[in-house]
């Protein structure tokens, strides 16, 4: 039981980074950024490849940078070349498949086995014993959350928030929305890259297909969190919701895995349903109201 709790919390905290990225792109900028899946693998590939060569720290650092670059490419496609935002993400994501393979030395899987990672090095410090992975991951995630909270209250952060809220108003304030979109997407993908990097070194492996569906899972976590922490939507509450949503999701995942009420492969379908329903909810509600009104009128 303690073991399940431990993995649930650890995975909840580490994957909160992807949801944090989606919070920035989807909620703040109002852009569905489909770079996420490939960017996650990119972070993982870079981090694991460098750890394999004996540079775990450099690997994490470069994974963050690479993630940011992937975000930049997507931003460039949509702000400078007029590619619709969803398509821009898909295009980058597709191209990343090859880049990721290249980063992994043209194999689809790398295992670190006895190599040093950020996590083994931290564990050797003797802090937290069994819980050392969790402690490390939660510190990084909490710091990231604090950073995002701070960043969004700076002038630049305010302009990025306004870009998703009223783009014309941003222009009227003499700010170039191309710039704010670019900064937002770069930042978001830095966190996605970081997440892939940490998971890769923690699980001591990188797999070219590890990112499939990450974006939908991240959105599901975002929505679950927002549903649990409802009420006044402040930035702080929204960021806390990101974390709560991830922990709850990973908990459900663990329960299904343990009890085997369902084959675990069903989880992706369920996740997709959660996301589709949650995003469709306002439309469904509206249609239902219209239908009821029409029925009353027609009587």
């Amino acid at each position: 039981m303690a073991y399940i709790l431990q993995t649930t919390l650890t995975l909840g905290f580490v994957y909160a980074l992807v949801a944090l990225a989606l919070f920035i792109s989807y909620r703040i900028l109002d852009i569905a950024d489909l770079t996420t899946d490939g960017c996650y693998v990119l972070g993982m590939a870079v981090s694991v490849a460098f750890a394999y060569q004996g540079h775990p720290f450099l690997g994490i650092f470069l994974a963050i940078i690479s993630g940011g670059l992937a975000g930049f490419v997507t931003a460039f496609l949509q702000t400078r070349l007029g590619v619709p935002s969803i398509l821009a993400g898909i295009v980058t994501n597709t191209g990343l498949y090859t880049v990721n393979l290249m980063a992994m030395g043209w194999t689809s899987n790398i295992a670190l086995l006895k190599k040093e990672t950020l996590f083994t090095l931290f564990h050797n410090l003797g802090i937290g014993g069994n819980w050392s992975d969790f402690i490390l991951v939660s510190c990084i995630t909490l710091l990231s959350m604090l950073f995002v909270r701070w960043f969004l209250s700076t002038r630049l952060g305010l302009s990025i928030r306004a870009t998703g809220d009223n783009r014309d108003m941003v222009r009227a304030s003499s700010i170039n929305p191309r710039f704010t979109i670019t900064v937002g997407l770069v930042l978001a993908n830095c966190f996605t890259g970081l997440c892939g990097a940490l998971v890769g070194q923690m699980q001591k492996s990188a797999d070219i297909n590890a990112g499939t569906g990450i974006v939908v899972i991240g959105l599901a976590c975002l929505i679950i969190g927002e549903t649990i922490i409802n009420g006044k939507k402040t930035i702080t509450r929204n960021i806390v919701a990101v974390l709560i949503g991830n922990i709850v999701y990973r908990f459900i995942y663990a329960i299904i895995l343990q009890t085997r009420i369902l084959p675990i492969d069903f989880l992706k379908l369920i996740t997709a349903l959660i996301v589709a329903l949650a995003i469709a909810a306002p439309t469904i509600k509206e249609n239902a109201q219209l239908y009821n009104r029409a029925r009353k009128e027609m009587k």
């Binding site: 002038r155 305010l158 302009s159 928030r161 306004a162 809220d165 009223n166 108003m169 939507k233």
Partner: peptide, 13 residues
Amino acid sequence: TAPHMTIEENLAL
């Protein structure tokens, strides 16, 4: 104006 931001934040922008 940006509807989901406060009066103060709008003015700051």
